[in-house]
Structure formats: structure tokens, C-alpha cells
């Protein structure tokens, strides 16, 4: 099957939003913490600086995880 999905345009957002976080990690914002952690690990392994990845993308991934984790701890009771 040919690849029909269109690539997202442009670069990273200047200020990371919740939407971007979910996109980077490939999860939904409301997913459980375990799932987010697992997704972070998977994406991180793929882009780790030691294994051919680079620091810029890695820092974006970590920023994304931190943001979701912070949100998960405080705020909603669900």
C-alpha cells in the first residue's frame, strides 16, 4: 500500500503545545501514564543521540514527556 499520509508542514512549534506533545510521542493526551512512559521510551530509543539520533530531537522528546507528566500529576482527578 502506498504511503498516503501527508507530512506535517513546517518545523517545531516555538512554544510546545499539548497538541504537539501528543504528536511527538504518538499518544493521546488522555492516555494513561504507563502508556505515555512506554511511548516515550520507544520514541527515545529510536532517536537517541548514542544510536544515530541527535540532541535536538531528543531534547524535544524529553520536553514533551516532562510536560505530559507534569500535567498528569496535578489537575484533573481522572
Amino acid at each position: 500500500m502506498p504511503h498516503v499520509r501527508k507530512f506535517y508542514p513546517g518545523g517545531f512549534e516555538t512554544e510546545m503545545s499539548r497538541r504537539e506533545v501528543a504528536l511527538i510521542l504518538g499518544v493521546r493526551e488522555r492516555d494513561a501514564l504507563d502508556k505515555i512512559k512506554e511511548a516515550h521510551k520507544r520514541v527515545m530509543v529510536a532517536n537517541h543521540p548514542d544510536g544515530g539520533g541527535n540532541h535536538y530531537i531528543a531534547s524535544k522528546i524529553n520536553e514533551a514527556k516532562d510536560m505530559l507528566m507534569r500535567k498528569g500529576k496535578s489537575g484533573s482527578i481522572f
Binding site: F7, I24, G26, V43, A46, N47, G53, I57, I61
Partner: peptide
């Protein structure tokens, strides 16, 4: 090639897009 391939198999489509746009 490396980054694109890696993100295709175990990364996210969003990051793959960024690599492609770059």
C-alpha cells in the same frame, strides 16, 4: 535516511515529518 527509517519503525509520524521537512 537513518532518522527517517528509525522513526518509521519505532518513532512517531510527527517526528518523521519534521525529518522529512528538514
Amino acid at each position: 535516511d537513518k532518522l527517517f527509517e528509525r522513526n518509521a519503525t519505532s518513532g512517531s509520524f510527527y517526528l518523521q515529518s519534521k525529518v522529512h521537512r528538514a
